[in-house]
Computed example of a mutant assay.
Amino acid sequence: MLLRHKGPNEVTTIGYARVSTSDQDCTIQEAALKAAGCDVIRSEKRSGTTTKGRDELATVLEFLREGDVLMVTRIDRLARSVFDLEAIVKAITAKGATLKATEQPIDTSTSAGKAFLQMLGVFAEFETSIRKERQLEGIAKAKQAGVYKGRKPSVPTDEIKRLAADGLGATAIAKTLGVGRASVYRALGEVSA
């Protein structure tokens, strides 16, 4: 659906929905945004830990004009770091638009709404940091127990060493195995010139 403003002096309310993975669904967010009166809703399946690659968000931010409202269900749908949240809010404000949330008392047209937004941004970033710490703790425990082996090697190191022992050079090995020459050099413990 293309983004279109209602008319020259009419406010457009644009909904933005986001989920992190392709197996998740935006339906619940989209229904809440529609019920809140959004004229247009844009959705995407991308991580919220960065704004990079979030094309729908970029489109919405570019489209906003003075008086418009960007609506989300919760601010963690918009950003997972205080830095990104502040940058997004700055972009919205620079356009003369406001940010509102359906499930949180956020309305950047009011002082209380701005303060609440900043507090929630800190908590969203804290939650992301805690999740990363727990993940690293789990990996460390699994390694201690001998359960975690890490990612499987993508380059057949043993095969590279065997072909090198047979007299093949790095370029020939790379072609034979369909890997990069740098991978061959790493597997052999050499540095390419």
Rank of each mutant, 00 (worst) to 15 (best):
L85I: 02
G178Y: 09
D158Y: 07
I160R: 07
M71E: 03
K90I: 00
T176D: 05
L117P: 05
T13N: 01
S129D: 05
T171Y: 13
K34W: 10
E62W: 01
K90G: 06
I88H: 04
D158S: 05
T98W: 14
R42V: 07
K114F: 09
E56F: 00
P105K: 13
A79Q: 02
E137V: 06
A97D: 01
P105W: 15
G48M: 03
E56A: 05
I28C: 00
T176I: 00
T13L: 04
L163M: 10
T51E: 02
F123P: 06
S43N: 02
S20T: 09
V60P: 12
F63T: 03
C26M: 05
A32W: 14
L3N: 03
F123G: 01
S192V: 14
G121V: 02
A91S: 13
D55T: 15
I88V: 12
Q29G: 00
D23K: 13
K175L: 07
V69S: 01
Q135Y: 06
I14C: 02
D76C: 07
S109T: 14
A193S: 13
R54A: 11
K45A: 02
R42T: 03
A91R: 09
D55S: 14
A36W: 13
V40R: 10
T73L: 03
F116S: 03
H5T: 00
K90S: 08
G178H: 06
A32M: 12
A35P: 00
S47H: 02
Q104H: 14
K114G: 01
V155P: 11
Y185V: 06
A97N: 01
R80P: 15
V155E: 05
Q104F: 15
M71V: 05
C26S: 05
R4E: 06
D25A: 00
T102A: 06
M119Y: 08
P8K: 08
G67N: 09
V89L: 04
D25T: 14
C38M: 10
L64E: 02
A97K: 00
R74F: 11
Q29M: 08
L2E: 04
E127R: 08
E127N: 06
Y16Q: 00
T108K: 12
L188N: 11
Y16F: 10
R151W: 06
T73R: 04
E159S: 05
E190W: 15
Y185L: 08
